[in-house]
């Protein structure tokens, strides 16, 4: 009997489709030694960067099968996949540094809301849900990818070899994400009256969460040479945003910042009301089937 599957796969063909599905791991050959720093702080820092990527990827993936055009569906899924890949490497590193036997899935699926350390901008609904639309999604993509690219750019010099390697890989990905966002900002701002209004509304929706991105957290302050101080990212961020806004003839939104709660925000595990729903959905199967293997 002839087998229809034979001859479909070329031996030795590269199979870049998902981290951990058979090809060489993304960080193969990277030194995994843990630098001589405060371990708890390092684990927490890996969680911060990993949670940003995981939660934001979860939001972006909501566009799958809902994008304005099929080509854009593919593009947004690519970005979500890049971020998910970064999240997995970072959560794995967090577990390794913490050395308490938690792997990427335990960390992603069995932590409670207060233990998630992502910035709040990653978790809010910016569309396709009722909290936004494609314009809001692009506004967030511009802000987050500009910020994260600056962050990873500095992180390539981290004294933690794994963080440095994740950053080196991520810089290439983020450069593409930022470019994609900037291209769309130009088109939406310079397209029709409707699209311009929506682009501006989108920026107004996400802008209140920008100050949080540049606030130094004690964990970051405790890891000189390993962590990036986000306060130092502001200059690059401003310069890129000014360039894009200049080309798109946009002004910076004049909106109030969303206040922290008693001085605490995402990095401290204090989140918006959207976060609980996001986690409930993401974690529900894993939590409702104890002992199951996937």
């Amino acid at each position: 009997m002839d087998n229809a599957y034979d001859g479909l796969t070329d031996a030795g063909e590269e199979r870049h489709w998902a981290f951990g599905t058979g090809f060489t791991a993304a960080l193969a050959g990277v030194d995994r030694a843990i630098p001589d720093v405060d371990r708890a702080a390092l684990a927490a820092y890996c969680l911060m960067l990993g949670d940003d990527a995981l939660v934001y990827s979860q939001r972006l993936a909501e566009w799958c099968s809902r994008a304005p055009e099929l080509e854009e569906d593919v593009a947004l899924a690519n970005i979500a996949l890049d971020l998910l890949g970064q999240a997995r490497l970072l959560l794995t590193r967090a577990g390794e540094v913490e050395a308490a036997g938690r792997d990427e899935d335990t960390l992603a699926y069995l932590r409670d809301e207060r233990e998630f350390r992502n910035v709040r901008l990653t978790e809010i609904d910016c569309g396709p849900g009722p909290g936004g639309d494609f314009g809001t999604t692009i506004a967030r993509l511009l802000v987050l990818s500009t910020w994260r690219l600056a962050l990873l750019g500095q992180l390539t010099a981290s004294a933690d070899p794994v963080l440095a390697a994740v950053a080196a890989k991520g810089v290439k990905e983020l450069a593409y994400h930022r470019d994609h966002a900037a291209q769309w900002v130009l088109r939406l701002a310079g397209g029709t009256d409707v699209s311009r209004a929506r682009m501006i509304a989108g920026l107004e929706r996400v802008w209140p969460f920008t100050d949080e991105l540049f606030t130094t957290h004690p964990v970051e302050a405790a890891l000189p040479g390993v962590a990036v101080d986000p306060a130092t990212l502001r200059a690059e961020f401003d310069q890129v945003i000014d360039t894009v806004f200049g080309a798109a003839d946009l002004d910076r939104p004049e909106v109030r910042q969303v206040a922290p709660l008693a001085g605490q925000a995402g990095r401290d595990g204090v989140h918006t009301e959207a976060m609980g729903f996001l986690l409930a959905e993401m974690q529900h199967i894993a939590r409702s089937t104890p002992g199951a293997v996937w």
């Binding site: 870049h16 489709w17 854009e72 593009a75 690519n78 088109r187």
Partner: peptide, 22 residues
């Protein structure tokens, strides 16, 4: 593929036809 202009066409092509780094 379809794209609004040359720039986006190039980006869409990258996403669609080389998403496994071909």
């Amino acid at each position: 593929l379809h794209a609004p202009d040359d720039e986006m066409a190039l980006r869409n092509a990258r996403d669609l036809y080389t998403r496994r780094n071909e």
